[in-house]
Structure formats: C-alpha cells, structure tokens
Amino acid sequence: MNLTVNQIYKSFGEKNVLKGISFSAQSGKALGILGRNGAGKTTLIRIIMQVFGANSGTVTLDGEAIDPEKVRIGYLPEERGLYPKQKIMTQLLYFAELKGVDKKSARNTADKYFKELEIEQYKNVRLDTLSKGNQQKIQLIAALIANPDIVILDEPFSGLDPVNAGMLKNIVKELIADGKMVLFSSHQMNYIEEFCDDIVILNGGKSVLEGSIKKIKRSYARNILEISTQETENALNAVLNASLPFVSKAEVIDGKLTVILKDEESKPQLIKFAAENIPDIDGIAVKEPTLADIFIHYTEGSV
C-alpha cells in the first residue's frame, strides 16, 4: 500500500498550522516524520486519522480516500493516555472493539504482545498500578491490538530503559518485516536512523525535505574527510605545516582530524598526503552529515 499525503493545508481560526505538507509512505517500510515541537506533527497525524478534515489537500491510500472500515490505523500518541482506573485487558479489548475487531482475535493479539513484552502478569490489574515503562508497553499494545495496517508511533521510546527500548525495537522491526506501514515520529535521531529508510522533515507547517535518508546524506557535499589516528595533534600539525593548497580548513573534532577540502576532487591528493605524512592511521573516510545535522540545517531559525 502506498500512502500519499498531498498538499495538506489546515488552519484553526486565524492560526495556519499546516501550509502545504506532502509526502508518501509505503507498506513494509518506516517513514520518519521529523519536526520541531509545534511543527504540526500531531495535527498532521490527526488529519491522517480523520479526527478532523484538512482545509485543502488529500490523504490517499493507493489513490483512494482511507476507508476506516477497511484500513485500520494503530496510534501510539505522544501524550500517553489510557484509562488509569480500568483493568488493562478490559480497556485494551474496548479499544479493539471500537476499531471493529472482535474480542477473541483482540485477546489473542494482546496475549501475544503481553508475552513478548514480558508483562503477562499485569493483564488484569489496573493501569495506574504499573510503572511508567510498563504503562508505555500497554500503550503500545493498545496501538497494535487491532492488528493495524498502518502504525503511527509518536515518540515511542521516550522514558524507556535500554532493556525495554530493546523489546520495543524488536516489535517495530517485526511490524516492518510483517509488511506494515510505520509512521514514526521522534526527536531521537538514532532511532529514526535505525528504522527508517525515508524521512520527511516538517518546518513551519510545510514539508521542507522528503526522501531516503541515504540519498539525502549523499546529496550533501562529500568534501569533508575524517582521519582517525592515535596522534591527532601531530597529524594536525603535519597538515597545517604543509599548507596544502587544496585544504580550506583542518581541525580536531571529537578526537578525529577533520579536514575540509576546497573540492571533492582533491580527496585522492589528501589521502596520498596522509598516507605519506601521518604515521599510524586507523582509518580515513568521508564525513557524512548526521541526521541531526540535516534536521538542524532544515529547521533552524523558524518554527
């Protein structure tokens, strides 16, 4: 399935929240939705989930409007919320029923995840008796209980310890392997890089960048080289003293000698220089921008 969001505009009163959002996502893949706080992610998610309509623009699945009777969307909201005073299984089944899933299959799905997340003993206790991490797991089960075709995860990893985060990661990977479409929103870039092939960056109510992470990274100039060595200071001096004509800047960043070239074509010349003049080289590689760099580049200055 292919989800296409096309030129979505949405305003609340005088306030224009979304001013032209477009992107697409495929089944069996995860799409990272990035944006600073207040960029309109929640509004966008609500439009996709048909909580309210857009002022203009379309959301289509394989070219047709989403029919909630046929296509199920699972949602893990950033603002966690379930009934604190209700028994866990009772409310999970209730949410499943609201989505049109019969109790029996919902119970099976829930059982499967209870086991996988190692919280089987909490099935019939009240939600508010659980720790934050375990409540988070229940929230995830609530998102997945209707066996959704599209899963929207908004900051799923916040507040989880590494063990729990690991369990959750496995589930997300399973979802992707099962051919679900995963829309993933997070400020933790490492998770985005781990799961998502594609990203869309929202800024100021617009989608400012969309595409595969690899390609985006490739699109940046490849004129920065990182040289790993045990003796960075000596290496830096060697480069600076040689006053190479093709080097525009050299400095030590994060324990690595980082050399900015005037152009990409000079890479072989620098490698040759390094091999001859810098002793004990561990490695030399083009420095790609991190996702955080890209994110900051596209969102800095405005919201």
Partner: peptide
C-alpha cells in the same frame, strides 16, 4: 477524566 488522562487521544482516533 478521559481528557485529563489523555485516554481521549485514543478515543478520538478510534471512534
């Protein structure tokens, strides 16, 4: 309560 506990987030996206 549904609002303050944010159960509403799931409710409105389910019904």
């Amino acid at each position: 309560t549904e609002k303050s506990s944010r159960a509403m987030e799931l409710l409105i996206t389910s019904a």
